[in-house]
Design a protein around this nucleic acid. Structure first.
Length: 215
DNA sequence: CTCCCGATAT
DNA sequence: ATATCAGGAG
């Protein structure tokens, strides 16, 4: 397991590699962000952006998603995986926004997580990006990178990964840190054949050293 | 734990 | 062909 200083070093290296790390889901308000993040489950954000480019022209407000049939909404997001579940969740979510929140997106993680299709990760992303609240959303990349490097244990749950990161990183850096780890995972420490031989963090990466040995 | 699920990279 | 993609709910 890496200590606090080693983790700090990892994050600094990531910052140097990806100085412009930030969210890549295209949106123009909190509501669009919620929809985009919900759609992004098990799907690349690139594809989400392709779909929302059309989607957001047709659907501006929660009412618009309820004005069409479930089947029509499914067709409009069809090229994204899990589209039946996501279409259903979007309509449920929009109804709650209208009935409970006056058509606005709630600001707290707790409220966000009560919405259909919005779990811990999505709530953290929305709270962080739309409302500037410090948060570390643990997605597939953050989990994989944290476990490979030894920031946390292999068997840790996503909540434990999140808690470890929040403990080891100062609060004001949570949001940038989150994005840096994502970029590092997405473009460098990839799920399939990560290029450990050219990794600046190889020396302190337990998984990297193990992989290099097996080549 | 399983299911939802199309697009894309390898 | 198959693993993986800004996961969440039952």
């Amino acid at each position: 397991m890496l200590n606090k200083k080693q983790i700090r070093y990892c994050l600094d290296v990531m910052a140097e590699m990806f100085p412009d790390a930030k969210g890549e889901l295209i949106h123009s308000n909190p509501f669009e962000l919620v929809i985009a993040v919900l759609l992004s489950a098990q799907c690349t954000d690139k594809l989400v952006n392709k779909v929302t480019a059309h989607l957001f022209l047709k659907y501006k407000e929660p009412e618009d998603y309820l004005a069409v049939s479930l089947e029509e909404l499914q067709q409009d997001i069809r090229s994204i995986g899990l589209y039946r579940t996501k279409a259903k969740n979007i309509q449920k979510l929009c109804k709650v926004l209208i009935d409970e929140y006056n058509g606005e997106v709630p600001r707290t993680k707790e409220e966000l997580m009560t919405l259909a299709g919005v779990g811990r990760k999505t709530a953290n992303v929305v709270a962080s990006i739309a409302f500037g609240e410090p948060a570390i959303a643990v997605d597939t990349h953050v989990e994989r990178v944290s476990k490979r490097l030894g920031i946390c244990r292999w068997k840790d749950s996503v909540i434990e990964v999140e808690e470890t990161l929040m403990r080891k990183v100062p609060r004001e850096e949570w949001s940038v840190t989150h994005h840096r780890i994502i970029f590092f995972g997405r473009y460098h420490c990839k799920a399939r054949n990560p290029n450990c031989l050219e990794c600046p963090l190889l020396e302190l990466c337990r998984e990297g050293k193990k992989r290099v040995k097996n080549v």
